[in-house]
Computed example of a mutant assay.
Amino acid sequence: MEGFVALDGKHVLVTGGGTGIGAAIAQSLAHAGASVTIASRNLDRLQKFASTSDNISAISLDVTDAGHVTEVFAGLGDVDILINNAGAALTAPFHKMSEEIWSQMLGVNLTGTFLCTQAALAPMKVKNWGRIINIASTAAHKGYAYTSAYCAAKHGVVGMTKALALELAGTGITANCVCPGFTDTQIVADAIENITTKTRRSEEEALGELVKGNPQKRLIEPEEVANAALWLCRDESRSITGQSINVAGGEVM
């Protein structure tokens, strides 16, 4: 059918794939014919989602544990398309931020992306084909108050992706980032709850605070992010590498 991206025979790994953006990407790529493995530390939630599609399976994976990443990838088989989506966003004023929060944010958002990418690369190089798609954030291009560790990690993801794209330019492997603005996910729901608790604002006022930077004045839908990832998987997108695709209603240009 027109606009359909055939990914038959491709194996996709989506980290953080059980909910939100990761689930939308997994569903979209499975619909396009790929065999999709979703991974996170919460295996029960993953298996519940995986049961909705014959093309999706679930595994447990802690992206911050180098030994576990190596072990899981060794038993996973070749990964043709890697979606580094696992992430978390803890907030704190900079002067009150603990080293624990700092390390946790860099660990799950940046080091986890590094570890999984490194583990997936060798089979891609043998096949001379692969797609590495890192789900970053508009926080990779601008600052948000009280999220310095998260912003630092996501800026790092973009920098790493650009460098990797240059190293892979002579191969059939591309490396890109997709950078969503505030998206209708559990992370944003938690942020709204945090705002209402601390400021006594209504949910509507808290939502307005989050989307005020988006010229469209709305949350991004997970399916919109998935559509960008699907486009990057196309053979026709092989010249798109080292890029950051902003899905943010014009918030970042």
Rank of each mutant, 00 (worst) to 15 (best):
E2G: 06
E2A: 11
F4V: 14
F4W: 04
F4H: 12
K10H: 10
H11D: 08
V14H: 03
I21W: 03
I25A: 09
A26V: 08
H31S: 11
H31P: 02
A32Y: 07
G33E: 01
T37K: 04
A39S: 02
A39N: 01
S40K: 10
N42G: 07
D44E: 15
L46M: 08
L46C: 09
Q47D: 09
K48H: 14
S51L: 07
D54M: 07
S60C: 14
D62N: 14
D65A: 05
D65H: 07
A66V: 08
G67H: 08
G67T: 12
G67D: 10
H68V: 12
V69T: 02
V72Y: 00
A74K: 13
G77S: 05
I81T: 01
N85G: 13
N85C: 14
A88C: 08
T91Y: 10
T91D: 09
T91E: 10
K96V: 05
S98G: 03
E100R: 10
E100D: 14
Q104V: 15
Q104K: 15
G107F: 03
L110C: 11
L110R: 09
T117Q: 06
P123I: 04
M124C: 05
K125M: 13
K125A: 14
V126D: 11
I133N: 02
I135C: 03
A136P: 02
A136N: 15
A140D: 06
K142M: 15
G143F: 11
A152Q: 08
A153P: 06
G156C: 02
G159W: 08
T161F: 04
A163F: 01
T171L: 04
T171V: 06
G172Q: 01
G172E: 06
I173M: 07
C177R: 07
V178W: 00
V178Y: 01
C179P: 00
P180G: 09
G181L: 00
F182E: 12
D190C: 09
N194A: 15
N194V: 14
T196H: 06
K198Y: 06
R200N: 15
R201T: 15
S202V: 11
E205G: 06
L210P: 08
K212D: 11
N214K: 04
K217P: 00
L219R: 01
L219T: 07
E224I: 06
V225M: 03
A229H: 08
W231K: 07
W231G: 10
D235S: 05
E236F: 00
S239T: 09
I240N: 12
T241K: 06
G242M: 08
Q243K: 11
N246G: 07
N246E: 13
V247W: 01
G250I: 00
V252I: 13
